[in-house]
Design a protein around this nucleic acid. Sequence first.
DNA 1: GCGTGATATCGTTAATCGACGATAGACGAT
DNA 2: ATCGTCTATCGTCGATTAACGATATCACGC
Lengths: 92, 92
Amino acid sequence: MDGPRADADLAAFAKAVGHPVRTRILRMLARKDAHMCSHIVDELPLAQSTVSEHLRILRNAGLVKANEKGPRVGYCIVPSALKRFKVLLNGV
Amino acid sequence: MDGPRADADLAAFAKAVGHPVRTRILRMLARKDAHMCSHIVDELPLAQSTVSEHLRILRNAGLVKANEKGPRVGYCIVPSALKRFKVLLNGV
DNA sequence: GCGTGATATCGTTAATCGACGATAGACGAT
DNA sequence: ATCGTCTATCGTCGATTAACGATATCACGC
């Protein structure tokens, strides 16, 4: 589970989560199976494009994925990635 | 343990750890009670000032502290902070 | 006091980040 | 086919970060 890329992976996860808006988004996603981007936008005092960018960062980190179902994208957590993040951190 | 500042705190911890050099430093500190800054410098391909800056970031995040013992500063992990980081993350 | 070794801080530079508005693309409904 | 809705991407701007060398500071031994 933790190979030579443990430092790089842990840092990448942490960097992705290292912004209050993204921790909040993560929590929102963790409490439901899926969220539409617009739902998240509604709950945050940010422009839609900004939220989309934060979601892209979380997606690039592998922590979140989108069910590619047309314009109404359902976002959800990738449990295995979140788990690996926790394992890596707990291993420090 | 997780109040209204949970998002901010988690994000701050994650941001501090969100750099491969700092995860590596954290691991080094986790394996010993204390390290001198110069020891860390020796093991990293970075200038002393750069390492000092990374240590400052970890210190500001509360994850690391320095035993103020003159110029030979011994750095060590703050277990309670690291624990809180883990708890916050595991709570997501 | 004077030097020496160990850290910290300063000043600079290039790179990255965070936010926004504007725009483009994709789908469902009319 | 066109419209309206939802999301992604682009371009920009100011702020922050990462890295370095140079310089200051501090504590100890001489």
